[in-house]
Every structure is written in C-alpha cells, then in structure tokens.
Amino acid sequence: MATEAHSEEGGLVFHPMDQFIVEPFFGDGPVAWYTVTNATFWMFLAVIAVFALLVLGSSKRSVIPTRMQSVAELAYGFIYKMVEDICGKEGVKYFPYIMTLFMFIVCCNFLGLIPTAFTPTSHFAVTVVLALAVFLTVTILGFVKNGAAFLSLFWVASAPLALRPILAVIEIISYFVRPVSHSIRLAGNVMAGHAVIKVFAGFAALTAVSPIAILGITAMYGLEVLVSFIQAYVFTILTCVYLKDALHPHH
C-alpha cells in the first residue's frame, strides 16, 4: 500500500486505485492465464499461511499449546461452534469446507495489510468465484438432500394465499442475488478501506497536513485490521445460513 505522491503544476497527484491493478509478479508484459501475477502470488502465500497455522502450528498437539497452536485451536473451535449453532449437527460434516473458506479469506485480508502487499479479496474476480462456489454447493446440496421439496424454500406457507405467488417471485430473485451481494460485500469493504488509507498516505506528503494524515492512516489501519476479520466472519456466517436453508428448507 505504498504511495507515490508528487506535485504537478502545483497540485498533489496520487492514484489510490493503482494498488488493485493485477500485473505480472516477475517482469513486465501482458497477463496470460499462466502468468504468475501479484494476485496469484499473494493467494499462494495465503494458502501457505493457512497450512503453516493449521497443520504445522498444531502438529505437535502439545498439552501446553504454543502460540500458533493456540490460535489454530481458537479458530477451529470458533468456526466449529458457528457451523453447529447455525446448521445443527447435520451441518458439521461440511465444517472442513467452511473452515477452509474462513481461513483463506482471513489470511488474504491480513496479508493484504502488509505494506506494498496485494489483497486478492479486493478483486471481484476472486470473491465472485468464492461466492459462486458457495451458491452452487448449497443449491446442488439442497436438491440432493431434499429433492423437489427444496423448492418449498421459496413458498411462504405462513403468508396469505393471495400473496404467496408474489412472495415466491421475490424469494427466487432474492435467492439468485445471493452470490452478487455475497461477493460485493467482501470485495467492496476491503477495496474501500485500502483506497482510503492510500488517500491519507498521499496527503502525508504535504508538510502542512502530514500529522493529521498520519493519524488518519493509523486510525484507518486499525479499523482495517478489524474489518479484515469481520468481513471473513460475515462471509462465513452467511455461508452457514445458506447451508442451513439447503439442509432444512422448511424452517
């Protein structure tokens, strides 16, 4: 998130959105499907971080846990309880998938806070894939587990009969909008926070307002640490809610 600010014709020029440009990680040139980009590199680091924390960090299974093992156990218990509370005992079998989603997103978010790093979850190309994977998984699972009874999710039996067809259309539209809202919420919040930090960093080049800009950067950075976790949590808890609908469409 380093910034380049300079004066041109008496004005301050900086580009807060440049940090989101996907470009080759090694050298220059066009980006092809096989090109190692800054996005793929930092996603790879996120996977390594998840592996290091959950596999290597807890491999010894010490009675007196190390810090890494404590964090791994805390994350495991936190997500397991979330899945069990929302989806019930039947949803626990899908815990590995939900745990993987949470850890990947939270690691991408936190790694993106490192200066000069790239945040993959600020791109809709990444969050849309994650959201579509959840949407397709719960939809297919809903039909596999319940058959045609899964369609009862869209039929509001408690409403007056005359309103049920209208509500059914609204429910269907709402259902297919899920991956859109699911992905935009994550990418939009991450992108906005990083852009604001870079704007403050640009103003830090001006001597007159640099103390205020530095305070703004510090405050925004602290907020982004919180947002990084909250957005991963929100994405995960919505996944659990959608999974519950697939497992129990009548509820």
Results as ranks from 00 to 15, higher is better:
2 A>G: 06
4 E>Q: 12
8 E>I: 09
10 G>L: 02
13 V>E: 06
14 F>V: 10
18 D>E: 14
19 Q>R: 15
20 F>A: 14
27 G>H: 04
30 P>S: 06
30 P>L: 13
40 T>I: 05
40 T>C: 04
42 W>E: 04
45 L>C: 14
52 A>V: 11
64 I>A: 11
64 I>E: 09
64 I>C: 02
74 L>C: 11
83 V>N: 01
85 D>Y: 08
97 Y>M: 14
100 T>N: 04
104 F>G: 00
105 I>D: 05
108 C>E: 08
113 L>R: 04
115 P>N: 01
116 T>G: 04
119 T>H: 01
125 A>Q: 07
131 A>W: 00
132 L>R: 03
133 A>S: 12
135 F>H: 08
139 T>M: 13
141 L>H: 09
142 G>W: 15
143 F>A: 01
148 A>Q: 14
152 S>K: 15
154 F>M: 03
155 W>V: 12
158 S>P: 13
167 L>N: 07
170 I>S: 07
172 I>T: 10
174 S>N: 12
175 Y>P: 09
177 V>S: 11
182 H>C: 05
183 S>E: 06
187 A>P: 02
188 G>Q: 06
190 V>Y: 07
192 A>W: 14
193 G>Y: 02
196 V>D: 12
197 I>W: 01
199 V>E: 02
203 F>G: 02
205 A>I: 08
206 L>H: 07
207 T>P: 08
207 T>F: 08
209 V>S: 11
211 P>W: 04
215 L>W: 02
232 A>I: 03
233 Y>M: 09
235 F>D: 00
235 F>Y: 10
239 T>I: 02
241 V>P: 08
243 L>T: 08
244 K>C: 02
244 K>M: 05
247 L>C: 08
